[in-house]
Design a binder for these strands. Structure first.
Lengths: 156, 156
DNA sequence: TCACCAACTGAGACTCAGTCTCATTTAGTA
DNA sequence: TACTAAATGAGACTGAGTCTCAGTTGGTGA
């Protein structure tokens, strides 16, 4: 399902069209806006982003559409840990996990088959019907480690 | 570090005493209250719990103490996924992960060395300084699966 | 034992994300 | 084209969490 923006937009609009949701200018605008945001975004980022364009969709409409898009599998909820709900576009069905830098907030995505396998095993063991999962590792990215080290050196 | 409530309370009070934090009646009350709550709790649960006791500590004081206790390693932040910040007492240093039932909200804790190992490997690979992590698997617990199945059967 | 002061406290105003209501508008259909 | 259920916007509301500030107090040094 790797595709460019236009193809993705067409795909998403098609999904919406064929769901029980009505196509409205607001919804089109929200979807278009979502697809221009690289990486993760919060619901309120979207409100701000749409405020800044000519497109119009109110806060309530945006908040109403997000769960519907999650339901349709267009968006995926990402637990950002230190912040409110965040979402990402499901353009690649391979599930990935996140490394989050506590200092600069950078999010590094990675895929780990070993972790996926272990999760399946745990769920089987507990008779748990696995729906989705999120692994977030917080700490310091390479760049922030370097910066902190150099600050310590210059301070001493 | 497995111990009973009294020992744990003594240990925590000792930690507080030897930190740069002052011992106040409010802080003692908050810590005592935290130790009576089994499992996870939200900051606001604590506010409510303390409201219901003779002990007194204001909302602001409680919210101020929580990060300090996390900093001291007495509490650990747990991402509950569908809700606001939740915490748990670090009485057992072995890190555990969570299975969360989307239907009844039950949280099942588990320890998985395979996952821990994979995380260490990923961090090394990305030159990421691992501080902490949280894995949350959402889905349906055994009981809820059974209930849903029986509802389906009786409906058809 | 006392005096001092930095740390702590409570009350309540504030902020911000998210939800709800309700009158109005509109997409899709028949 | 007319109808109606779904969608919309404005803005009030809710609830978690933060901030401010005047008053209080724990712990230390004399």
């Amino acid at each position: 399902m790797t595709m460019n923006r236009e193809e993705l937009e067409a795909e998403v609009m098609d999904l919406l069209q064929h769901s029980e949701l009505r196509m409205t200018p607001q919804r089109r605008a929200i979807v278009r806006q979502i697809l221009t945001i690289p990486g993760h975004f919060g619901a309120d980022d979207l409100v701000t982003a749409i405020d800044q364009t000519q497109e119009e969709a109110s806060r309530a409409t945006i908040y109403r559409l997000i769960p519907a898009l999650v339901e349709l599998g267009i968006l995926r909820e990402v637990e950002h840990g230190y912040d409110h709900s965040h979402y990402e576009v499901v353009s690649d069905p391979a599930h990935h996990e996140h490394l989050i830098c506590q200092r600069c907030g950078k999010v590094i995505e990675f895929v780990c088959p070993a972790i996926e396998g272990a999760i399946i095993g745990v769920c089987r063991e507990h008779n748990f019907h696995h729906h989705q999962h999120g692994l977030e590792i917080t700490g310091l990215c390479r760049e922030c480690q370097k910066e902190i080290d150099s600050q310590h050196l210059s301070a001493s």
